[in-house]
Design a protein around this nucleic acid. Structure first.
Lengths: 332, 332
DNA sequence: CGGCACGATGTGAGCGTTAACACGAAGAAG
DNA sequence: CTTCTTCGTGTTAACGCTCACATCGTGCCG
């Protein structure tokens, strides 16, 4: 910076002013400084800047370590929004879903001096760990918690999405609509159960048909599907709303193996609209989440918190139903 | 830090020594310092440290902006390896696949003062942009380039993987083995073509059956599949090796629509072993890449380059064939 | 018993930047 | 013509840390 100043024939402070877009610099001076920067290939030292301003311009993002569709999409969406807002994104993947791992990564990010943290891991233990970790910086949790969360929270309206899916089945004329739910300790899974319940109640249908898959995997979907396929008559649902597309994928597989036709015998709805969902057999009706919007929202909330602005937003991020051919009116 | 020193009754330098694990500190003194740190909740300022050591302990990772299975898995693997090695990971997603976007993100990461960069985007334009960007820090490209790359490169041996897949088909007795290849401007796609060619040549089979899908999507796989299904007799391959699982997924769909049975009429092999591949109909035979190993390797190479150690590694990271039920001997 | 090495700690400087203030010149207002 | 403001710029002092060196004691060897 001193070199630049010398080449441009100004003081280092003027260089700093140019770099920071300070208004009171003569255009001519500014041009000279810019030229000097260019010719010297100068790049300002972010560490020194961070030291003196005590702002690192970095936010941390904690995410699950496996390439799950939802969390990953959210991560990238946040990155985009963050870069647009002038922030760097430091990422830390969770090795496991327990509080200990959570504390480790939070500590890791803190030690880098992030200004704020976004946690993408909508799971009980993780959220509890976040709550118990008295963070010196704002932490935004990407989670749809039924109760009032203590901290900052942003989420796609999972409940509304589940409702959409279920209502679609109801409107087709289904009555025995089962929900194959995701892991109980995930907020998203619970919210989707709630949405399904809402829609069922509205339609005057019972909510006995709830089956917990245990996790989000295709394998669990498959095992559950085998069980359902073996049921006969009125014990078997005419439609299943799966907690996510992987579960739905497993269901399709199981039904196919057992000769249960989809959608003729059973309709299936998923959640996520993963890549390729349109090319499953049959093409999967599912619910798509607006991750870009979610990412932007995360960042807005975080930035507001950083600026000590009162955050009083109630933006519901609404998912969208994508109807394909795995759903049809019940036969018989 | 001064506060800690005062509480512990030592100088700030001793605190620094404790923090950096310097050997010549009496255990008793160390304990006192540690206690002071604990009681004050002190956390060392990474910016100041980076400023004086001129090491940010941060590496940048450039990745594609879409949640593709391979790149995402690689990203997380790198993050794990980096954290283990004491590095922070700053991520930047590519908005598009052109050189301009590449320069933008590299500049972004540079301005954060990363010590090194890993680029996960094994695609021509991106690699060219990396080559042309004279970076002041080491850049590792995750790419399997046929020619000798100018810079640091790490990759899973795509060619060997493709060979594995093709040889599996050959060993089942197939002779008309087609390859539905990924986008030509991706190194991985080209390497997989090469591997297929190798195996075909070894088996004394011709390599006329090459079909370019254009991209990695299930949709392209589907369209290609429809075309193949419409072929009759000897014009139709008895086996197809798809460039990735999404393409394979599209193929399965197309074949199903046209009544072409898999694996009875046509065998299908994918590449990636994405989540749920085992639960497709039929379960997909595919090739699994060892991303953890790849991530570790990336970091080893980068760290070596940072330490100015001569990097002369020739570790071939070998993928593994996963045989499921989408492949069988040809009938008739 | 002198000298020397080494272990344990303290002192001072400086990393590259921005914030705060100082300063001179030029114009506006009285 | 003075004084007050404003603009453009320079000067100095931090920010919190590590590095290099200085210092002081202790033990060991000849």
């Amino acid at each position: 910076m001193a070199d630049v100043a010398q080449v441009a024939g100004v003081s280092h402070q003027t260089v700093s002013r140019v770099l920071n877009g300070h208004p009171s610099v003569r255009p001519q001076t500014r041009a000279r400084v810019l030229a000097a920067i260019e010719s010297l290939g100068y790049r300002r030292n972010s560490a020194a800047r961070a030291l003196v301003t005590s702002r690192s311009a970095t936010i941390g993002v904690v995410t699950t370590g496996s390439p799950l569709y939802g969390p990953t999409s959210t991560l990238f969406a946040i990155e985009r929004a963050a870069r647009d807002a002038g922030y760097f994104v430091s990422v830390a993947a969770l090795a496991s879903y327990d509080g200990e791992a959570m504390r480790t990564v939070l500590e890791h990010l803190m030690s880098q001096g992030v200004e704020g943290i976004v946690v993408i891991a909508p799971q009980d233990d993780v959220a509890a760990a976040v709550d118990s970790f008295s963070s010196p910086v704002p932490v935004v949790l990407v989670a749809a918690r039924e109760g009032a969360g203590t901290g900052l929270e942003v989420a796609v309206d999972q409940r509304a999405g589940a409702r959409l899916a279920t209502e679609h089945l109801v409107s087709l004329g289904h009555e025995r609509i089962m929900h194959l739910s995701g892991p109980d300790d995930w907020f998203d899974a619970r919210e989707r159960v709630l949405g399904w319940r809402d829609a069922m109640a509205d339609a005057g249908l019972g909510t006995a048909g709830l089956l917990a898959a245990g996790d989000w995997s295709a394998e669990r979907g498959y095992r559950s599907g085998l069980g359902l396929a073996d049921r006969t008559g009125a014990a078997r649902p005419t439609a299943v709303f799966a907690g996510n597309d992987q579960l739905a994928l497993g269901l399709l597989r199981a039904f196919w193996e057992r000769g249960v036709r989809v959608p003729d015998d059973v309709s299936v709805v998923g959640f996520d609209d993963v890549e390729g969902a349109a090319y499953l057999v049959p093409a999967l009706t599912t619910v798509r989440q607006p991750f870009d919007e979610l990412g932007r929202e995360c960042l807005d909330v975080l930035v507001a918190a950083l600026g000590d602005v009162a955050v009083a937003r109630d933006v519901a991020i609404a998912p969208r139903l994508v109807v394909r051919s795995s759903t049809a009116p019940p036969t018989g």
